[in-house]
């Protein structure tokens, strides 16, 4: 039973902003040690979906379950406390802070200095450097370096290492490879696989077919805020996936089917293609 309970599950999640419905009846499961690739064009609702998972938005209706228990997040902090961690496109968001300092933003280690609690720079730096080196990025060896001096891939890696260090169980990666070159991107993909190996559930948002194919176990395609396709690796051929992702014929077909269906079904989308 425990084996099959997904770490994170969405059941019929809807999200509207005033009169605008952005997400329609989304049901999704993510298991530990699984990489879910979330695909979809700009405006398909990917961002809204991950923000809902991260506690930035509350679903208008529907439920979110973690380990089978219903959860609700009032703030991003609540989601983080439950182990849902989001890493954004540019990873390190504090370019002018040092590695050690930014690693511990909000959870600074302290040591006693007389009656005062002083930021423990040495511990912060050592912990941060060790965490990222454990992920195989050995080029980061000085916690006093500024984040802005790291390469894009290193920043992503650091951000992922940070999330894992602070006990993330679900890792949401928002286009981590979008701004990276081939070599940098492969670093990040390796780290995604490492996170998966450590038993994390990874939700990986990307536009790049090759990146999704390289790490994905489970693929979900969003169109117009609805889940248009939801399938496991091996259930579809590479060509079909590529076509879905790259906005080919299959995607165009789905798009028009969903649009037509929703018009005649009070805004409810059809069941996703498996």
């Amino acid at each position: 039973m425990a084996e099959n309970t997904p770490v994170l599950e969405l059941r019929d999640v809807n999200k509207s902003f005033g009169p605008i419905d952005v997400l329609h009846d989304i049901s999704l499961k993510v298991h530990a040690g699984e990489v879910l690739c979330l695909l979809g064009d700009n405006g398909a609702g990917k961002s809204t979906l991950i923000k809902t998972l991260a506690g930035v938005h509350r679903p208008t209706s529907g439920t979110i379950l973690m380990d089978g228990d219903e959860v609700s997040f009032d703030r991003p902090k609540d989601a983080q406390d439950r182990g849902i961690s989001t890493v954004h496109q540019f990873g390190g968001t504090f370019p002018l802070m040092t590695i050690g300092r930014s690693f511990f933003v909000g959870v600074e280690p302290t040591k006693k200095f007389g009656p005062l609690k002083i930021f423990d720079r040495k511990t912060a730096n050592e912990t941060a450097v060790k965490a990222v080196q454990d992920f195989g990025i050995t080029r980061i060896d000085d916690g006093d370096r500024l984040i802005g001096g790291l390469s894009g891939g290193e920043r992503q890696s650091l951000a992922i290492a940070r999330a894992v260090h602070f006990g993330a169980r679900v890792l949401i990666l928002d286009e981590p490879t979008a701004a990276l070159g081939v070599k940098q991107a492969s670093h990040v993909l390796r780290i995604v696989l490492e996170a998966k190996k450590r038993g994390l559930a990874v939700i990986f948002i990307t536009h790049q077919v090759t990146h999704a194919m390289a790490v994905g176990d489970h693929f979900a395609v969003l169109i117009r805020g609805a889940l248009a396709a939801n399938f496991m690796r091996g259930e579809k051929s590479r060509e079909e996936i590529t076509d879905l992702m790259a906005g080919g014929e299959a995607l165009a077909d789905l798009d028009s089917i969903i649009e037509g269906y929703m018009e005649t079904h009070e805004g409810h989308p059809p069941a996703p293609v498996a």
Partner: peptide, 12 residues
């Protein structure tokens, strides 16, 4: 102090 770190993080 951690508080100081927050000030920098907020500016970033």
């Amino acid at each position: 102090t951690p508080w100081g770190n927050w000030v920098f993080a907020m500016g970033g």
